[in-house]
C-alpha cells in the first residue's frame, strides 16, 4: 500500500464524522450567529448586520436582569457544590477502607442517574407547600405555617447543588486518589498538622481538579433550562428561560440567538478566567 493510498483511505475514515459535525453543528452555529444580527419587521425576518438585538439586551431591564440572575445562581451553585463535595470526596478517599471505596463512591453518585426532568420534579415534591420538608418541620413543631420553598431561587439552587455535589465528589475523588500518599507523609514528617498539610500541600495539588470540576459545573449550570423552570418557577428568569420564552410565545428568533451568543460569551470568559488551572485534556 503506497503512502498516498493510505492518506486517501485516512480521509475516507475521517470524512463522515467531520462532515456530520460541519453540517449539523458548525453550519447551524454560523446561521445562529447571523440570526442574532437579523431583525424582525413585524413577523418577517430581515437579514442584515444589525446590533439591535444586542442593544436591546443592554437596554431592556428584564434581559439584563436575566443575565445577572443566571450569573448569581451559577456562582452560588458552583461555590456551594465545591464546598460540600470536597469533604465528602476526602472522606471517601482517606477514611473509607480502599476495598470499599468504589462501592461507597458508586452509592454517592447513584441518584445521578435519575432522569434529568424527574430529578427536578422530585425536589419539587420534597419542597412543596405540603411536601416532606414542611410537614416534617411542622410535625416537629419547629414552624407553625408551611414555608414557601418551591418556586424560589432557594429551590433552584438546591436542585442544582444536589446534582453537582455528586458530579464534583466524583471528579475531586478521582483527583485525590491520584496523589501519592508520600506528599502527606512528608508534610507530616516535617511537622505540619492536619490542617497545614491540607492547606499547603493537598489543596494546591488538587486545585486543577477542583477548577476543572468547577468549570464543568459553571458551564452545565448556566445553560440549563429545566431546573430553574421547574423549581424556580417564573418568579425570576434565567437566560435559558428567557431564550425559551422568546422562542415560544414571541417567536423572536433573532433575540433568542443573540441571547445564546451572550451565553456562549459568558462561558468563554469563565474559561479564560480559569484557563490557567484547567486541564481539560485530562478529563
Amino acid at each position: 500500500m503506497s503512502a498516498q493510498t493510505a492518506t486517501i483511505r485516512g480521509w475516507g475514515f475521517l470524512a463522515p464524522a467531520v462532515l456530520w459535525t460541519l453540517a449539523f453543528f458548525i453550519v447551524p452555529f454560523v446561521v445562529m450567529g447571523a440570526m442574532s444580527l437579523a431583525t424582525l419587521d413585524g413577523r418577517t425576518l430581515v437579514w442584515g448586520l444589525s446590533l439591535d438585538n444586542y442593544r436591546e439586551l443592554a437596554g431592556q431591564a428584564y434581559l439584563a436582569r436575566a443575565i445577572a440572575v443566571s450569573l448569581e445562581i451559577t456562582l452560588t451553585v458552583t461555590l456551594v457544590s465545591v464546598l460540600l463535595a470536597y469533604p465528602l470526596a476526602w472522606i471517601i478517599a482517606y477514611r473509607v477502607p480502599p476495598r470499599w471505596q468504589r462501592l461507597v463512591l458508586l452509592l454517592a453518585i447513584l441518584p445521578f442517574w435519575t432522569s434529568y426532568v424527574v430529578r427536578s420534579y422530585a425536589w419539587l415534591l420534597v419542597l412543596a407547600r405540603d411536601g416532606v420538608v414542611n410537614q416534617t418541620l411542622m410535625g416537629l413543631g419547629l414552624i407553625a405555617e408551611p414555608l414557601t420553598l418551591a418556586n424560589t431561587r432557594f429551590a433552584t439552587v438546591t436542585g442544582f447543588v444536589h446534582f453537582f455535589v455528586m458530579l464534583l465528589t466524583l471528579t475531586i475523588y478521582a483527583n485525590l486518589v491520584q496523589l501519592s500518599p508520600n506528599y502527606r507523609k512528608a508534610a507530616m514528617d516535617l511537622g505540619a498538622n492536619a490542617f497545614q498539610t491540607f492547606r499547603h500541600v493537598i489543596l494546591p495539588l488538587t486545585l486543577p481538579g477542583i477548577m476543572t470540576g468547577a468549570f464543568l459545573t459553571f458551564v452545565l449550570c448556566i445553560g440549563d433550562y429545566i431546573t430553574p423552570q421547574i423549581l424556580g418557577g417564573n418568579t425570576e428568569l434565567t437566560v435559558p428561560q428567557v431564550i425559551m420564552v422568546q422562542l415560544g410565545r414571541r417567536a423572536d428568533f433573532p433575540l433568542a440567538a443573540a441571547l445564546a451568543i451572550v451565553l456562549m460569551g459568558i462561558v468563554t470568559l469563565a474559561y479564560l478566567a480559569m484557563a490557567r488551572w484547567l486541564r481539560l485534556d485530562r478529563l
Binding site: A17, T21, P28, Y225, F253, A256, A257, L263, M264
Partner: peptide
C-alpha cells in the same frame, strides 16, 4: 473540530439546528 460540540450548551446546539430546520 470533532470535540467542539462538547464545549457548547445543549440549548445552543438545539437552537442552531432548530433555526436551520425552520
Amino acid at each position: 473540530l470533532l470535540i467542539a460540540p462538547l464545549t457548547v450548551s445543549y440549548l445552543i446546539v438545539g437552537l442552531g439546528l432548530l433555526i436551520v430546520v425552520q
